[in-house]
Design a binder for these strands. Structure first.
Length: 857
RNA sequence: GCGGGCGUGGCGGAACCGGUAGACGCACGGGACUUAAAAUCCCGGGGCCGCGAGCCAUGCGGGUUCGAUCCCCGCCGCCCGCACCA
């Protein structure tokens, strides 16, 4: 029996595609375009299964779109700056640049072996000065336009990575990469003014209708818009005042204290003269830094002895309030100062109970009695009617908010304000392997941008990694330059960009990777952007995707392009998972270190028990990784691709199993044999399909056209697992068909050609090979997608269920255009229906054409 | 705690807009081919029992409907995001 020679075949077609430059694209405004993009990889050295899944999904879309007439852009590149390169330098003594470039070479070969329809002419690497020089120029433009600024502030310091992290990069109080508890430090940092776009980024989410709802919601929550008011509380015995932000100005009459953050300017002023307060603050900051404690941390405060005058003291509110420093008040949200209304805020209630402060309800729940309503253990945060609040009395909460804000504004006591949870994006990193920030620090001129004609500021090659910290900062010469403005000795900025900056605009660079004097040509980006389909992991739902959306707008406002949103369609794929194993001592075992014994139990290779654990994301730490390169060598790229698409919907996790990959491999070989074996029966290529002469032939013809319709639809809806199922069903149908006549043989050719044409996006090498065997000269990758003939997508008869009182009792066969009366008659005549009726008279008969007949008695 | 998602055979999953639950595959059982095995091909299959013209089945309990995996209410379980955001 012949076997599909996948190795030779895959190499053959990859060579032909490359020679004929099939997948290279050019800007051509006369044609409709389609930009398919997978999130570019970090060049770690080897591809993993997540990459294989990602690029398979993208390639299916790219190939389908190309064959349905689009001018497709499908590029690939490298997110090449980042910490692992420096770790390699530290551990193995390799230079980060050398390490990165050799990894890129290796991974490029691995990705190429997958046979994706990529335009390699457009390959970019972000660590190449030809890429990051444009980023430096854009940074200077943004600096001029006020979209970039430098500020001294508290930062999240990762003690392991010895660098600063953005808020988004801190997860549960730990560094997103190192997992080490983050410390708070004070440093001067560069920031992108992403908050200037908070409202726009939020509002535009509604229009991203081809994004997963989940991702839009995550971004919405991340931006965290809240409407409220900023209220002035004058300090008694002083001339200044506190600014307080609140979303509940309607509860001002219920205020019983004011609280400020431990790092509020007023706190810092007070602690100079109050050692007890200083100790309290130190305590708070330590707990804040040592995360977890927060979880259980009680509401604690320190009475400063200062008091604030209530702005509404003249209108029946408490005349003045104590000012506490409280551990639960955050300096970087709102104004760092709050007023506490214990009756209507759970935190304030806990605080009030602890310190014996009054609890005065001012919102009455619906149906409650104003004379007897009191607050117990739970604050009342719902809607109700305001009372004990002068002119707000009787109003519902929403109304009261509007009224009090108008009042505060009229009397100069405060104003309505919208606050966002989103903070500006800190991009300074104390690292070597990143894009240098193109500014110079001069003692007399301050911060001076590097003149444009001196860009790019490139990284020095001769760096020393033997000591911790930033090698750029220690470099003997690199940072010492003359000030471009005054000519006196000055210092380069030694921080580099967060690597999320590079990935914020790479999709635009792909449009014109060759242009040197600008990041891209207008003509190219105007044509290709936005990306029509972006595909990657959900882990980037907030960070990368939000930064890229911001950066696109910043580029727009600097006149680089005319675009708001970079990614029109977004698809987030699930993870690739695998069963985990441990030995008796609890040590993780690799999948190739276990087998099943004769009783089907998991054992190690030398027969000791292996304990299967949970199915988890493939990770080195749990040792449950399967190397894609090994799979491609053993089974071929098409098998790996097919398995990636089979069974699991792409948005869900996919469990890698040996059995699954074997199943895909068997099917690949079955397809090969099917065409091989039927080939001698077929009329020559180009023979017109001809009309079916008997029922079997008609059935095949219908199967062909129904398959085209259903598979196409499945692809378009990203139901790739269904597409695989439908194609297998189609294969089963062809296998069962025995051609007996000349038209039958012509039909068999039509069926096989259609099958091969439909599987091409998934298993392109096999499909090209079979297409050629069937006698075609033209490449399948460049051939049009099959079109279903509507005359053959209809069934000639339909089977419908007949229910009696909603229970299925019989099945009838009718023509699709049968009238309701006919269907009713046939159904009622059915013996099984008669039996179920047991002589009872039908009260009602519901007939849904093509669906069901339901007899109600 | 808040927000979101998901629960369907032994397993991954189908089921369009409320209309025959279990497509397709994996694993399994039986058979064919073979000296034998592998490979391949064919057949079978949700559960129960008295094996039928039966009953029960989409996490659990209710509801709406002629009819519910699908809609509504209340539970239970798992997963993800945020986490003192005033």
């Amino acid at each position: 029996m012949s076997r599909y020679p996948f190795r030779a075949t895959e190499q053959k077609w990859q060579r032909i595609w490359e020679e004929r430059r099939c997948f290279e694209s050019v800007t051509d405004p006369s044609r409709p375009k389609y930009y398919v993009l997978e999130m570019f990889p970090y060049p770690s050295g080897r591809i993993h299964m997540g990459h294989v899944r990602n690029y398979t999904l993208g390639d299916v879309v790219a190939r389908l779109k190309r064959r349905t007439g689009y001018n497709v852009l499908h590029p690939m590149g490298w997110d090449a700056f980042g910490l692992p390169a420096e770790n390699a330098a530290l551990e193995k003594g390799v230079h980060p640049a050398d390490w990165t470039w050799s990894n890129i070479a290796e991974m490029r070969a691995q990705i190429k072996s997958m046979g994706c329809s990529l335009d390699w002419k457009r390959e970019i690497a972000t660590c190449d000065p030809s890429y990051y020089r444009h980023e430096q120029a854009m940074f200077l433009d943004m600096l001029e336009r006020g979209l970039v600024y430098r500020k001294e502030g508290w930062v999240n310091w990762d003690p392991v990575e010895q660098t600063v992290l953005a808020n988004e990069q801190v997860i549960d109080g730990r560094g997103w990469r190192s997992g080490a508890p983050v410390e708070r430090r004070k440093l001067a940092q560069w920031f992108f003014r992403i908050t200037a776009y908070a409202e726009e980024l939020l509002a535009a989410l509604d229009r991203l209708d081809r994004w997963p709802e989940k991702v839009r919601l995550m971004q919405k929550n991340w931006i965290g818009r809240s409407e409220g008011a900023r209220v002035r509380f004058p300090l008694l015995g002083r001339t200044d005042h506190l600014e307080v932000f609140t979303t509940r100005p309607d509860t001002l009459w219920g205020a019983s204290f004011v609280a400020i953050a431990p790092d509020h300017p007023l706190t810092r002023e007070l602690l100079e003269r109050d050692p007890q307060l200083a100790a309290f603050v130190e305590d708070c900051l330590r707990i804040a830094a040592s995360e977890e404690a927060l979880e259980k941390a009680e509401k604690r405060g320190y009475d400063t002895g200062l008091r604030a005058r209530h702005p509404l003291a003249d209108y029946g509110a408490p005349s003045d309030l104590p000012i506490y420093v409280a551990n639960f008040v955050l300096m970087d949200y709102g104004t760092g100062a709050i007023f506490g209304c214990p009756a209507h805020d759970q935190r304030d209630l806990e605080f009030a109970r602890r310190y014996g402060l009054p609890v005065r309800p001012v919102v009455l729940p619906p149906g409650a009695d104003p004379t007897s309503f009191t607050i117990g253990e739970e604050a009342f945060t719902g809607d109700g009617t305001v009372f004990h609040s002068a002119f707000l009395d009787g109003l519902p909460v929403a109304e009261a908010k509007k009224r009090i804000i108008a009042f505060l504004e009229e009397h100069g006591l405060g104003r309505g304000e919208v606050t966002y949870r989103l903070r500006d994006w800190g991009v300074s990193r104390q690292r070597y392997w990143g894009c240098p920030i193109p500014v110079i620090h001069c003692e007399s001129c301050g911060i001076v941008p590097v003149p444009r004609d001196q860009l790019p500021v490139t990284l020095p090659y001769d760096v020393d990694f033997s000591k911790p910290g930033n090698p750029l900062d220690r470099h003997p010469t690199w940072k010492y330059v003359d000030c471009p403005r005054c000519g006196r000795p000055a210092r380069r900025e030694t921080d580099t960009f967060d690597t999320f900056v590079e990935s914020s605009w790479y999709f635009a660079r792909y449009c014109s990777p060759d242009v040197t004097d600008a990041p891209f040509r207008r003509r190219d980006v105007d044509y290709w952007l936005p990306v029509d389909q972006y595909i990657g992991g959900v882990e980037h739902a907030v960070l990368h995707l939000l930064y890229a959306r911001f950066f696109t707008r910043a580029m727009r406002d600097c006149g680089y392009l005319d675009l708001d949103e970079p990614f029109l369609g977004l698809f987030t794929q699930g993870m690739v998972t695998h069963l985990t194993f441990r030995d008796e001592r609890g040590r993780w075992l690799q999948p190739d270190e276990v087998r099943r014994d004769e009783h089907g139990r998991w054992v190690t290779l030398d027969g000791r028990p292996a304990i299967p654990g949970r199915v988890e994301k493939m990770s080195k730490s749990k040792k449950n990784v399967v190397d894609p390169q090994r799979i491609i060598e053993a089974y071929g790229a098409d098998t790996a691709r097919l398995f990636m698409l089979s069974d699991s919907p792409p948005e869900r996790d996919l469990e890698w199993t040996e059995a699954g990959i074997d199943g895909a491999f068997r099917y690949i070989n079955r397809l090969w044999r099917l065409v091989e074996e039927r080939l001698p029966l077929l009329p020559p290529v180009g023979t017109p399909p001809g009309e079916p002469g008997n029922e079997a032939e008609a059935a095949l013809k219908r199967l062909v056209h129904r398959s085209i319709r259903r598979v196409t639809e499945a692809f378009e809806r990203f139901h790739f697992n269904k597409a695989v199922a439908l194609v297998r069903e189609f294969t089963n149908g062809i296998e069962a068909f025995e051609p007996a006549t000349a038209p039958g043989r012509a039909l068999l050719r039509e069926a096989l050609e259609t099958l091969v044409a439909l599987i091409e996006p998934m298993v392109p090498h096999l499909a090209e090979e079979l297409w050629q065997k069937l006698g075609h000269q033209r490449l399948l990758a460049e051939s049009p997608w099959p079109v279903a003939d509507p005359a053959w997508t209809r069934e000639e008869t339909v089977r419908l269920a007949v229910q009696v009182n909603g229970k299925r009792r019989a099945e009838i066969e009718v023509t699709p255009d049968a009238s309701e009366d006919e269907m009713r008659e046939i159904a009622l005549a059915d013996p099984a229906v008669q039996r179920a009726l047991a002589g009872r008279e039908p009260k009602r008969v519901i007939v849904v054409p093509g669906r069901i007949v339901n007899v109600v008695v």
